[in-house]
Design a protein around this nucleic acid. Structure first.
Lengths: 292, 292
DNA sequence: CCTTCATCTTCTCAAACTGAGTCTTTCTCC
DNA sequence: GGAGAAAGACTCAGTTTGAGAAGATGAAGG
């Protein structure tokens, strides 16, 4: 990445430098924003307003503003645009880089390198399409990601932001092309990678709390794990484990005031602790399968 | 569904599309190639032949060829160019994506997004500068990465709702010209991230074997862990653990013919097994430090 | 009012795993 | 031949995990 010329000073070089001398590659960010709604894992999606893949669901994203923002800033901006969240609400959202996708043919227009980000958010309001999207909404991941949950669960109508005219569709599959999973471009793969990252990440970080509100019960935390992992956990052992990992949660001293749906004692309330890593980690049950 | 502006078909759209309508962002790949030489961890580096940072060490890398190669292909190509390895030798190298770095100011020429890759290789021959590099070589990581090999293993804090974007380039090293700890651009941070990834990855994958030859002894494998982690391990416990993890290594039935440097019985030889994940994992000692 | 039942939380117990150390055997070097 | 070092098997105590059970609590239904 350089011009070979010994005598040139760096200043001269920069003055002469022509950024357009290279074939262009567009850089975009795409966001896999996950949240829990009604006990199901949902991902933020937008309905594309124009070609390519017009009418398809896609991950929210857009071009990085050259020279004006970092990748993380671009991802936060895109997320804010689609969710309508202000900076304060975004502060509660965990955002981390997921990976980059840059095959020459993943976008028919030109060579596009997309840097994907992964967001964990507590229950968020309905999405509002921003930019050139025709619609936006939270889609249950099991409806669009066949490679998603190990246990296949039945799909469910998804909620939409603005464009609700056509009912969401039972199988959640209507916006055409894109094949199984039905997301535009290679967004199905990006989503699958994001889900796997999320499943792995809550093993050794306290990020499961990012799906919950300020305070929560151990049972609510367990339900996050069960939903993300798609597996039932032993309530007693989970309880013991969570309380034994230093810094995972800290007690508020209060008990849940909301009436339990089916009775039972009021659960104690906790808030997220100060740990950034869980040690020892909470491991997913039965990883033997993945060993291969 | 959406009809952005009525009659336009996707074909029309593609015909009209002008890739140069956007401000350009250059896309490069950089490779953190790690290998073991003489019991020390080394990273492949090139000496820059021209500005910016002429004369500085940098990670090998270069521009992605627009429309002609994927990111992984570009990384493999750059690695091959600098090491002079052929495809066969490269087949033994593990190459995975590390992350992307895209702050607007990380390259003085223009906005450059760099996709970093991490490579694990067995002992490799001396490097040969390819392309526009003035020199190439294997540098001991502790000589250039102050955050490289601390006695205390400390993980990087995960990125929480970042706005300034640590990946963006703000928090990294300033363009430290030359000197210890100074790699060009933000390559010091990329190297540090690569080292942390390597330390974490050998915990739960058998990738430590990627630093060794076809066959190896348990002691050689332990020395890989000790070198990468920068900590001494209990030989007996390590031995027991490695043999108890299914699929980690498999015996060749033979014993080492090379004479031990200071005597002792000939060690048995093993080769890498078929596991892709280690279960249970080999955990680094003393992770408590990183929890908070 | 009283029973039923799901839940929250704590306990028990056996199995598995970990860290630390010892011991025997087999080499090389002096 | 003896010293020193390493490979590898073994012991042992402490910790962690999986599975189950028990007591307490509160809503719902009769």
């Amino acid at each position: 990445m350089t011009q070979p010329d010994g005598a040139q000073t760096e200043r001269d070089f920069l003055a002469q430098y022509d950024p357009r001398a290279f074939d262009p590659i567009a850089v975009t960010v795409d966001v896999v924003a996950l949240t829990l709604r009604a006990g199901r894992l949902h991902v933020l999606a937008v309905e594309r307003g124009g070609p390519p893949f017009a009418g398809c669901w896609a991950l929210p994203g857009g071009f990085v503003r050259a020279g004006r923002e970092s990748l993380a800033e671009a991802a936060a901006r895109e997320l804010a645009e689609e969710t309508g969240l202000d900076a304060a609400a975004l502060g509660r959202v965990h955002l981390e880089q997921l990976g980059s996708y840059g095959g020459p043919d993943r976008d028919p227009r030109m060579h596009v390198v997309s840097v994907a980000y992964l967001a964990f958010a507590p229950g968020l309001p309905d999405a509002h399409p921003g930019g050139d999207a025709a619609g936006a909404g939270w889609l249950p991941v099991e409806a669009i990601s066949p490679e998603g949950q190990p246990d296949q669960v039945r799909p469910r109508p998804f909620e939409q932001g603005r464009r609700t005219g056509t009912y969401g569709g039972g199988a959640g599959r209507r916006p055409g092309q894109g094949g199984a999973g039905g997301l535009a471009f290679d967004h199905g793969r990006i989503l699958a990678d994001g889900l796997e990252r999320a499943r792995a990440k809550i093993e050794y970080t306290p990020l499961a709390t990012a799906f919950l509100g300020e305070t929560f019960t151990i049972t609510e935390l367990r339900e996050v794990y069960e939903t993300v992992w798609g597996a039932a956990l032993h309530a007693g052992n989970f309880h013991r484990k969570v309380l034994s990992v230093p810094g995972f949660v800290e007690s508020t001293g209060e008990t849940d005031t909301r009436p339990g749906s089916r009775g039972g004692p009021r659960a104690r309330l906790y808030r997220a602790g100060d740990a950034r890593l869980l040690h020892p980690a909470l491991l997913r049950p039965d990883r033997e399968a993945g060993v291969r």
